[in-house]
Amino acid sequence: MCLGIPGEIIEINRDQPDLAKVSVSGVKRTINIGLLEDDPPLPGDWILIHVGFALSKIDESEAQAVLDFLEGIGQSYEDELAALRDSSIE
């Protein structure tokens, strides 16, 4: 991914707590949340994702504003969602 994309934490991996399942515009993937160990996200929290890593926690209104912007740029956002769909972190 080239863009920072908002995603909502769905669940934290109990066996590997540095991994979490997120939903990004309906695409569900596992990402690494280890960079947020000082303020670990919980299910329902929104995060900014870049190349499979959570970079920061953001609030829901900020997440929605970013999603609205990204959807407005069209193909670049669609390309990022396709890359997310094809990615895998285990």
Rank of each mutant, 00 (worst) to 15 (best):
S23Q: 09
G74M: 01
K28N: 13
I12L: 13
G34F: 10
Q75R: 14
G74P: 09
D38P: 00
E71Y: 06
P40F: 08
Q75H: 11
L67G: 02
D59L: 01
I9T: 08
K28A: 00
L84M: 14
V24N: 10
R85T: 05
D68F: 04
G52D: 05
I47N: 01
S76V: 09
G4K: 12
A54S: 13
N13D: 15
L81V: 11
L35G: 00
V24A: 12
V27P: 04
L70Y: 07
G7D: 07
A20Y: 11
A82H: 09
A20P: 10
G74F: 06
L19R: 15
R85S: 13
P41N: 01
A20F: 10
W46P: 02
Q64M: 10
L36H: 07
E11N: 14
W46M: 01
E60H: 12
G52I: 05
T30L: 07
E11F: 02
G34Y: 11
N13C: 13
P41A: 04
A65T: 11
P6A: 06
I49N: 12
I10G: 00
V51T: 13
R14I: 11
G44M: 08
R29H: 04
D38L: 14
P6T: 02
D59P: 10
A82E: 15
P17A: 01
L84C: 08
A20R: 08
I73S: 07
V66N: 05
I73Y: 04
H50C: 03
R14H: 06
P43S: 08
Q75D: 14
D15A: 12
D45Q: 00
I5A: 01
G4R: 14
A54C: 06
D15E: 14
Q16T: 15
D79V: 07
L19I: 13
L36W: 06
S76P: 00
G44A: 11
I49T: 07
E60T: 14
L55N: 11
P17L: 08
E80F: 03
R29P: 00
P43E: 07
E11Y: 07
L70S: 06
G4H: 14
R85M: 05
F69Q: 00
Q75P: 00
L36P: 07
L70N: 03
L81P: 03
G34I: 09
D79Q: 09
L67E: 14
Q16S: 12
S76Q: 07
K21M: 13
E11C: 03
K28P: 00
D79S: 10
A54H: 05
P41I: 05
Q16A: 15
G74N: 01
S56W: 09
D79H: 04
I73R: 03
A65R: 13
S76T: 14
T30E: 05
D59T: 01
I58N: 03
I47D: 00
K57R: 15
E71A: 10
G7Q: 10
E78S: 03
S25T: 08
S23Y: 02
K28V: 10
H50K: 14
T30Q: 07
R29Y: 03
P17E: 05
D68G: 00
G44D: 04
I58A: 04
L84E: 10
G26I: 06
D59N: 15
R85I: 00
D45L: 12
G26S: 06
L70A: 01
S23T: 15
A54V: 06
P43I: 14
E62I: 00
